[in-house]
């Protein structure tokens, strides 16, 4: 998610296409859209890779259409219950929903930025507790425990974890395991 040039996560997060509506005619560039037309006409919509969107949007050649992963449907679902949305499946392989959101965030105007940032931050914060809870639960199960918290919601929450959350999950689990190991060793007398 960081802006480091060499960050694999940043590269993966930008591996997305964003729909853009052109505001001007661009002659002889129709092949970019993969279609048969010769020109890109005004008000036509094309799916463009993120790296191209930066330039085109900043030059005011096209308007970005909010990708469905951050559309009103998802927003409403997140407002209702952040933990029941499967973030990973919203953005395809890799599942870097926050990373993609951060990319979009940078292309928005100031008022949009704040709103987008609030959306991402609130979602992250609300889901974090559940992430850590489940991580600790799994750490407590030990190596033998295969079955997680019962119920489909927990299972589906885990499957829908964004890659960033997955990383946190692993960190929390590792930490809890270490603590558990340390506390349990203490049950034996040391000689």
């Amino acid at each position: 998610m960081e802006e480091d040039y060499f960050s694999i996560d940043a590269i993966l997060a930008e591996n997305q296409k964003i729909a853009c509506r052109f505001t001007i005619d661009i002659p002889d560039m129709g092949h970019l859209g993969g279609g048969g037309e010769r020109d890109i006409t005004r008000a036509s919509t094309l799916q463009l890779p993120v790296w191209l969107v930066y330039t085109i949007v900043l030059s005011n050649w096209a308007d970005m259409i909010m990708p469905p992963a951050f559309g009103s449907k998802v927003r409403n679902a997140l407002k209702a219950e952040p933990c029941s949305v499967r973030l990973a499946s919203l953005v395809g392989a890799g599942g870097l929903w926050y990373g993609f959101g951060k990319t979009i965030l940078e292309m928005l105007a100031d008022e949009g930025k704040q709103e987008m940032s609030n959306l991402l931050t609130n979602t992250f914060r609300k889901r974090l507790v559940e992430v850590i809870d489940q991580a600790q639960h799994f750490a407590a199960l030990g190596p033998a425990g295969g079955v997680g918290p019962t119920g489909d919601s927990a299972q589906s929450f885990r499957e829908g974890l964004d890659a960033t959350e997955r990383e946190l999950f692993a960190l929390a689990q590792e930490g809890s395991k270490r603590m558990k190991r340390w506390y349990e060793e203490s049950d034996k007398p040391r000689r």
């Binding site: 960081e2 959101g101 940078e106 704040q114 987008m116 940032s117 931050t121 992250f124 914060r125 960033t164």
Partner: peptide, 12 residues
């Protein structure tokens, strides 16, 4: 890690 993520999500 969580604070770093939150920091990244702040608008510039």
């Amino acid at each position: 890690q969580a604070m770093a993520v939150l920091g990244q999500l702040q608008p510039v």
